[in-house]
C-alpha cells in the first residue's frame, strides 16, 4: 500500500510530532525549558517494549503503561526540581536525561545495555502513527484552550500576577511537566514498536536538544507551529541525504537565525486558523 521508505518517514514525523507537542506545552506555553525529554522518551520506549516482550501485553496497553511510567517519573522529579529557577531547572532536566540513558546502558539484564533491546513486535504502522499524532494534537489543543492551559500561559506571561489571580504556580508547572513527559513516553513507546530494536543512544542529549530546537523553530506558544517545525526538521534532512552528517550544524544555524530574525519562531503565538482570521479581518475593515 505504501513503501517502507515513506512509511519510515511518516512514522518518524508522527512520533516526533507527539514528543514536540509535549515540549510545546512545557516550553511554548509554560516557559519551562527541559533538555531531558529524550529521557522520558526512553522510559516510555523501554517500558512499553518490556511490557510487549516480557509480559505479552496488548500493544495499546503497553503504550499506555509506557506513557504512564514517564508521567510518574516526571511527577517525582518535578516534585524535587520544579521550584528551581528556570536555568537551574533546565540543568536538572539535562542531568536527568543523561542519568536515564546511562542507567539503561548499565541495566544490561533488563534493557540489553549498549547492544539494545530487541525482538519488539512491529505494531506502529504508518496508520497507527498518524492516528496517534492526530489524537495527540487534539488532546494538546483541548488542554491549551481549557482553564489548565490558560493557567500555563498566565505563568509564562507573569508568575507573580498568575499567583495573585489564584493560580497555584507550582502545581500547574508540575502539571505541564508531567504532560510533556507523558507525550514523550507515548512517542517513545510508538517508536520502539516501529524500530523493533532500541538502544539507549537513540535517546541521548542531542535528541533532547533536537526536541527543544524543533519547538523553538516552530514557534513558542503555537501548537500548529510545533507540527510545522517537526516537519521541517524531520523532512529537510531526507531531501538532503548527502549532507545528513551536517544535520546538527544546520539545526544550530537555523536556531541562531530564528532567534535573531524571528524570536517568536515560525508561527509566533499564532495558530494556523489565526492566519486566515487575520486576513479576513483586514478585508472586512478595508471594506467598511
Amino acid at each position: 500500500m505504501i513503501n517502507s521508505f515513506y512509511e519510515g518517514i511518516i512514522v518518524t514525523c508522527c512520533v516526533n510530532i507527539i514528543a514536540v507537542l509535549g515540549m510545546s506545552v512545557l516550553t511554548g506555553f509554560t516557559r519551562l525549558f527541559s533538555f531531558g525529554n529524550a529521557g522520558f522518551m526512553a522510559i516510555g520506549a523501554y517500558t512499553a517494549a518490556i511490557c510487549s516482550v516480557q509480559f505479552h501485553l496488548p500493544f495499546a496497553l503497553s503504550i499506555l503503561i509506557g506513557s504512564a511510567a514517564a508521567g510518574i517519573v516526571a511527577y517525582l522529579l518535578g516534585s524535587l526540581t520544579i521550584r528551581l529557577r528556570g536555568d537551574y531547572f533546565l540543568i536538572s532536566c539535562l542531568g536527568f536525561g543523561e542519568c536515564v540513558r546511562v542507567l539503561f546502558l548499565y541495566l544490561r539484564d533488563i534493557t540489553g545495555g549498549a547492544v539494545g533491546y530487541t525482538g519488539i513486535p512491529f505494531r506502529t504502522t504508518w496508520i497507527v502513527a498518524l492516528v496517534c499524532a492526530i489524537a495527540a494534537f487534539i488532546i494538546a489543543w483541548n488542554l491549551i484552550h481549557s482553564r489548565f492551559g490558560q493557567a500555563f500561559s498566565a505563568i509564562r506571561e507573569n508568575e507573580v500576577a498568575a499567583a495573585a489571580n489564584g493560580i497555584d504556580v507550582v502545581k500547574y508547572k508540575k502539571m505541564s511537566f508531567v504532560f510533556s513527559a507523558i507525550f514523550a513516553g507515548w512517542a517513545g513507546g510508538l517508536y520502539a514498536h516501529y524500530l523493533q530494536h532500541i538502544t539507549p543512544v537513540l535517546f541521548n542529549l542531542p535528541k533532547s536538544c533536537e526536541l527543544v530546537i524543533t519547538t523553538v523553530l516552530g514557534g513558542l506558544g503555537s501548537l500548529s507551529g510545533s507540527v510545522l517545525g517537526t516537519l521541517v526538521v524531520q523532512l529537510l534532512p531526507e531531501f538532503f541525504r548527502k549532507f545528513s552528517e551536517y544535520r546538527m550544524l544546520a539545526y544550530g544555524i537555523a536556531v541562531v537565525l530564528v532567534i535573531l530574525l524571528r524570536p517568536s519562531g515560525l508561527m509566533g503565538y499564532k495558530e494556523f486558523p489565526d492566519l486566515f482570521k487575520k486576513t479576513g479581518k483586514k478585508k472586512s475593515t478595508g471594506g467598511a
Binding site: 488532546i139 483541548n142 488542554l143 481549557s146 482553564r147 489548565f148 490558560q150 493557567a151 500561559s153 498566565a154 506571561e157 507573569n158 507573580v160 500576577a161 498568575a162 495573585a164 489571580n165 489564584g166 493560580i167 506558544g221 503565538y269
Partner: peptide, 30 residues
C-alpha cells in the same frame, strides 16, 4: 503586571477561572 502577550479578554478569563467548574478529563474530551 498584565499577561502581556495574551488578549485583553484572556487576561480577565484567566482570573474568572478561579471558580474552576470542570475537570481535566472534561476539558480534554470537550
Amino acid at each position: 503586571r498584565l499577561f502581556g502577550n495574551l488578549s485583553v479578554k484572556m487576561n480577565v478569563i484567566i482570573a474568572c477561572n478561579i471558580r474552576g467548574g470542570y475537570t481535566m478529563a472534561e476539558a480534554l474530551l470537550r
